[in-house]
Amino acid sequence: MELYESAMPKMIIIGLDHFLQNLNHLSLTEDGRSYEAEQKKHFVQVLEDAVSQNGVTLICEECAFNGGSPGAELARKYRCRHVNITTSREERERLEIPADYQNDPAQTTRAIGLFEEHMANAIRSELRDEDVGMVMVGEVHRTAVEKSAAEFGTVIDSRGLSDFEWYEGPPVMEAGTGRFLGSCKRVTGKIS
């Protein structure tokens, strides 16, 4: 009797800061926009390397619903599938997640757990056995999504913000003027 190993999808998990996904600049000054562009260029290179070196066939991305994101652009370029795994406003209402959930620690904990469950279910429903999926989620969700993903596939790589030596966090701007003060890491000593 021969035993056959069943095919399982493979996944790469990338933890991110959502400012890196924004195709528009947040900064008001040229210095700030230049800083943002440099950070985003590095981020896109990480993603592009993951897609091209691993034969990614599906990109699952926690991103805005406006349709513009680095993951969607890479999916078009490499002709692979893209799915937004963000919990929609309608689903948040159904789950009774208040719009201001971040103002209450208990609601924040509950919402994050529900978001991670939603993302894991969305990934599971989109992933085929032969897929290599790249999963892009906020760094806060990476460990939980990685654990869930390991239940229905093989996680071949997982990296987050602290793994990227170039990452220095979002731009910090002076209140009132919008003047670029530097990266979050340089101004506060932290990356987020």
Rank of each mutant, 00 (worst) to 15 (best):
R94C: 03
E36M: 05
Q21K: 04
S192P: 06
G32T: 09
P171Q: 10
A111K: 11
V46G: 03
A144C: 12
H82N: 02
H25Q: 09
E151T: 12
I12V: 13
Q107Y: 06
L28I: 05
V145I: 15
G15R: 01
E73Y: 05
L28T: 08
F19S: 12
R186E: 13
G138S: 14
T86R: 01
H118G: 03
L3D: 10
A64C: 01
E93A: 15
T154R: 14
G169C: 05
Y4E: 10
G55A: 00
G153V: 01
K10V: 00
E90L: 04
F43I: 10
W166V: 07
V140T: 14
N103W: 03
Y4Q: 12
N84S: 00
I97W: 08
E73D: 06
P70W: 01
C184V: 08
A150E: 14
D157M: 12
E62S: 12
A72K: 05
L47R: 09
F65H: 09
E5R: 13
R79F: 00
N84G: 01
V145P: 09
L3G: 13
L114G: 03
D100G: 00
H18M: 10
E117C: 10
F43C: 10
H118T: 08
Q39F: 04
N22D: 09
V135E: 04
E117H: 11
R94Q: 10
R76F: 04
E168M: 05
T154M: 13
Y78C: 02
E116A: 06
M136A: 07
M134E: 05
R33G: 04
H18L: 07
G176D: 04
G138Q: 07
P170G: 12
G138V: 11
H141L: 10
D129A: 15
C60Q: 01
K40H: 14
P105Y: 02
A144P: 09
T87Q: 00
R124L: 07
V51I: 13
S148M: 12
G160Q: 06
E5I: 09
V155F: 07
F164S: 04
S158H: 01
H118Q: 04
P9W: 02
F115P: 00
A175M: 13
T109K: 07
V132Y: 05
Q53A: 10
V83I: 10
M134H: 07
L74H: 01
A150P: 06
I123L: 12
D17H: 08
R79M: 02
E73Q: 08
F19G: 02
D17Y: 07
D157T: 06
F43Y: 15
E38Y: 10
P170M: 11
E165P: 14
E146P: 02
L20D: 02
N103G: 14
G71C: 00
L23T: 12
E48R: 15
N121M: 13
I112L: 14
L114H: 05
K41W: 12
V51A: 08
F164W: 15
E139M: 05
V51D: 06
D100C: 02
M119D: 11
R92M: 11
N103E: 11
G71R: 00
L74F: 00
H82G: 00
F19D: 09
